[in-house]
């Protein structure tokens, strides 16, 4: 396994508010990493910096040895919390869009997943339910053969059956040599798939390590560790 992400002394401020403070991490390829923390801890800020939506106030970030830019955007597959597909499009339009801009997009995989969900590619995005829109977005993201997948709260606000579907889709469709970073505060559901864990609070790194090592060292599950670390 090689180093995929290098984060050195990363800070991000919004005016006087510090969202990330001197964060330093090295993340390897081929891992499923849980980015855990309470609301407002800096998880989304870190993910947005990694996918190029925010620039750091200070510090340095590289992905696969490259500065954040168009080259890293080509190898990063990002699932935001929001629905981003333009409402005027049909499902097949967004498939065409992804196929045009991402060389690693596997259209056959996407179409297969859509057909299993019984979503017709001719359907207009604005007629889909909220849950189905989120599933279409997830399918688009996981149908890419990317080096880094950034999933921001993929299971928040969905029913338990949908959560299982989302987690199964993640596990069965990603490139095993790639890294997945899943940001969430719903630990119980994703603990089973995590290799590594990052816990941050108020922009500071609190815990970082292998999930198995943390469980044996602390003698508790990651969910229990989370509750202890972030006890109010």
């Amino acid at each position: 396994m090689s180093e995929l992400i290098q984060i050195s002394d990363l800070s991000k401020s919004y005016g006087k508010k510090e969202a990330l403070s001197s964060l330093s991490l090295t993340l390897e390829s081929g891992k499923v990493i849980g980015l855990l923390g309470p609301n407002g801890s800096g998880k989304t800020t870190l993910i947005k910096i990694l996918c190029g939506l925010l620039t750091p106030t200070s510090g340095h970030v590289t992905i696969d040895g490259k500065e954040i830019g168009t080259e890293t955007k080509a190898i990063v597959s990002y699932l935001p919390e929001r629905t981003y597909i333009p409402k005027w499009m049909k499902v097949k339009d967004i498939l065409d869009y992804f196929e045009d801009f991402y060389k690693d997009f596997r259209r056959s995989v996407a179409e297969d997943m859509l057909s299993r969900l019984k979503i017709d590619p001719g359907t207009k995005i604005k007629t889909l339910s909220k849950g189905n829109k989120e599933k279409v977005q997830l399918i688009l993201v996981m149908s890419r053969d990317a080096k880094l997948y950034l999933l921001d709260e993929p299971i928040a606000g969905v029913d338990p059956a949908a959560r299982d579907y989302i987690l199964d889709t993640i596990v069965t469709n990603y490139n095993p040599d790639a890294t997945i970073i899943i940001s969430t505060h719903l630990i119980q559901d994703i603990e089973r798939i995590l290799d590594d864990v990052i816990m941050i609070q108020y922009g500071h790194l609190k815990v970082f390590g292998s999930a198995d090592a943390l469980r044996s060292e602390k003698g508790m599950s990651i969910d229990q560790l989370f509750r202890e670390v972030f006890r109010c």
């Binding site: 190029g52 939506l53 991402y102």
Partner: peptide
């Protein structure tokens, strides 16, 4: 809409300058 609303999460993460 493309650059500064929710669609911006798609547009601004494309490998495009």
């Amino acid at each position: 809409n493309n650059m500064f609303t929710d669609e911006g999460y798609l547009t601004n993460t494309l490998p495009v300058t």
